[in-house]
Simulated assay, not measured.
Amino acid sequence: MTTASLRIDGVAVSIDGKGVLLRGPSGSGRSDLALRLIDEGAKLISDEQVELHRDGERLLIGVPEVMPERLKGYIEARGLGLAQVPHVDVPQLLAWVVDMKDRAQIDRLPAAQSAEYLGLKAPLLKLDPFSLSATAKLRLAVRCGPGHILGRE
């Protein structure tokens, strides 16, 4: 049973059935990274705004209830417009929160970090969304989970 919810700015995708929240200001590369992930098989959860739900000791990420039906499954592709992409309608377990950062702001071997929402913590990564390896790094993080990456135990 969902006990609390919170709507925030961000883009969310589902990778292998696990939710990933991409955070950063407008123009930071959230949608660009999401588009590349979707092109590689991920599915859109929501673009621009997402809703987090606390379900006991789990954080779920989904489409805000207030989103008009006609916008569900659409993502903004700068220079192209709104495009319909593969998407999921069911909230997903939040596996990672990812902050969009410039390469110079990212440690080579970062210590474990987390983001807190609704009293629960989720593992946090910092990625350069425009790096060629960004999608591979994020897929690896989802596949491995935070407990299987050295320094993130």
Score class of each variant (00 low, 15 high):
residue 125 L to T: 04
residue 17 G to R: 14
residue 22 L to M: 05
residue 32 D to G: 12
residue 63 V to M: 00
residue 44 L to K: 02
residue 88 V to T: 09
residue 6 L to N: 12
residue 72 K to Y: 00
residue 45 I to W: 00
residue 31 S to T: 10
residue 107 D to H: 07
residue 25 P to W: 09
residue 88 V to Y: 01
residue 47 D to V: 03
residue 52 L to N: 09
residue 85 V to G: 03
residue 15 I to F: 00
residue 3 T to K: 07
residue 127 L to C: 06
residue 120 L to R: 14
residue 150 L to H: 14
residue 130 F to K: 11
residue 122 A to P: 01
residue 12 A to V: 03
residue 90 V to N: 01
residue 40 E to R: 13
residue 147 G to D: 15
residue 96 W to E: 06
residue 34 A to Q: 05
residue 148 H to T: 05
residue 64 P to H: 06
residue 122 A to L: 08
residue 11 V to C: 10
residue 71 L to H: 12
residue 33 L to C: 06
residue 92 Q to I: 01
residue 37 L to Q: 04
residue 96 W to Q: 01
residue 150 L to M: 05
residue 66 V to C: 05
residue 144 C to D: 11
residue 106 I to Y: 05
residue 70 R to F: 06
residue 19 G to Q: 04
residue 145 G to C: 07
residue 46 S to M: 05
residue 21 L to Q: 12
residue 112 A to T: 07
residue 59 L to F: 00
residue 66 V to L: 05
residue 130 F to C: 15
residue 133 S to P: 05
residue 94 L to V: 11
residue 20 V to R: 00
residue 52 L to D: 12
residue 106 I to M: 03
residue 2 T to K: 08
residue 117 Y to T: 09
residue 51 E to H: 08
residue 129 P to H: 14
residue 30 R to A: 05
residue 97 V to Q: 00
residue 8 I to T: 12
residue 129 P to W: 11
residue 146 P to N: 15
residue 33 L to H: 06
residue 56 G to I: 07
residue 4 A to L: 09
residue 75 I to M: 01
residue 96 W to I: 08
residue 129 P to I: 10
residue 40 E to H: 12
residue 135 T to Q: 10
residue 53 H to P: 01
residue 60 L to T: 04
residue 12 A to G: 11
residue 17 G to C: 10
residue 66 V to T: 10
residue 100 M to A: 11
residue 136 A to N: 13
residue 1 M to R: 07
residue 77 A to R: 11
residue 74 Y to H: 06
residue 20 V to E: 01
residue 57 E to Q: 14
residue 39 D to E: 15
residue 4 A to C: 05
residue 69 E to C: 02
residue 69 E to P: 14
residue 87 H to Y: 13
residue 140 L to S: 10
residue 30 R to M: 07
